[in-house]
Simulated scan of single mutants.
Amino acid sequence: MAFDEDSFIDFRFNTNYRYGFVGGPNFATLEKRLRSGVTRRRPLMDMPLHRYRAELATFNEDERAALLDAIWVAEGKAYTFRFRDFNDWRVSNQVLGYGDGTSSPIQLVKHYTRGPKTKSRDITLPVDVAMTADGVPFTGFVVQPIGGLVLPTTVWPAGALLEWTGTFDVCVRFANDYNPLTSVAGRINELMIELQEERYG
């Protein structure tokens, strides 16, 4: 996956959500009911795009300034930035594959498994990354903070099971060009915000 750094501004949106964000993965499904009454469904996208919505309130002057900065530099929907989804931001012992004795880059991923099915999600904005090879800490690597590629500083240990643990952000943009802040009687500040995940390829 090619990450479009020209349209990405490397800052994290305000994490002091007060009342929290509502959001999660948004899938797209084509549904068709046959004459027999049987319904057929087919996914339209390989991966979902996350959506978030929240009402921020009673933030202080520093937080107000930070919110205004974010809105201005993002130019509404034009530019993307980091977002910490506190429902899904940690990774623990996720398998990346087996070392092949080369120095080829490996994409960070997170796996979601229930029953016999697994969906794997590319992690493009890693924050903290620790790796093991056959369960032993492995430090011979560097990580691209934008894009999520892991490159060994020598070669991957041949035949070793490679796993990673860490945290990550989501690449998002404002869902709207108009993001008004409200001041009520000079004491209560409010901002209704919607964010949309953006994926590059």
Rank of each mutant, 00 (worst) to 15 (best):
M1H: 03
E5Y: 12
D6T: 15
S7Q: 07
S7T: 11
F8K: 05
I9S: 02
R12G: 03
N14K: 08
N16M: 06
V22T: 14
V22C: 07
V22R: 13
V22K: 12
G23I: 05
N26C: 10
A28Y: 01
T29E: 10
L30S: 14
R33N: 11
S36I: 02
R41T: 11
R41W: 01
R41Y: 01
R42M: 12
P43D: 06
M45S: 10
P48K: 07
L49I: 02
Y52F: 15
R53S: 15
E55N: 10
E55A: 06
A57K: 12
N60H: 13
E61R: 14
R64V: 01
A65I: 12
L68H: 00
D69Q: 13
A74L: 05
E75Q: 15
E75P: 01
R82S: 13
R84M: 10
D85P: 11
D88M: 09
W89L: 02
S92N: 09
S92V: 12
S92G: 00
N93R: 12
Q94I: 00
Q94K: 01
Q94H: 00
Q94M: 12
L96V: 00
L96N: 03
G99R: 12
G99V: 07
D100E: 11
G101I: 01
T102H: 14
S104L: 15
I106T: 10
Q107R: 14
H111E: 07
Y112K: 11
T113Y: 03
G115W: 10
P116K: 11
P116R: 12
T118F: 06
T118I: 13
T118H: 07
T118W: 11
K119D: 12
K119S: 12
S120Y: 05
D122G: 00
I123V: 15
L125N: 05
P126W: 07
P126D: 06
V127L: 13
V127M: 13
V129Y: 04
A130M: 11
A130E: 14
M131F: 07
T132M: 00
A133M: 05
D134P: 09
G135H: 06
G135L: 08
V136L: 11
V136W: 08
G140M: 09
V143S: 07
V150N: 06
L151S: 11
P152G: 02
T153V: 13
V155D: 09
A158W: 02
A160T: 04
A160S: 13
L161F: 01
L162E: 03
E163W: 04
T165V: 05
T167H: 05
F168H: 04
D169M: 06
V170K: 15
V170F: 13
C171N: 13
V172K: 04
R173V: 09
R173P: 00
R173L: 03
F174C: 01
N179H: 02
P180T: 03
P180G: 02
L181S: 00
L181A: 04
S183F: 04
G186C: 09
R187G: 07
R187N: 11
I188H: 04
L191G: 02
I193M: 11
E194S: 15
Q196Y: 10
E197R: 03
E197F: 03
E198A: 09
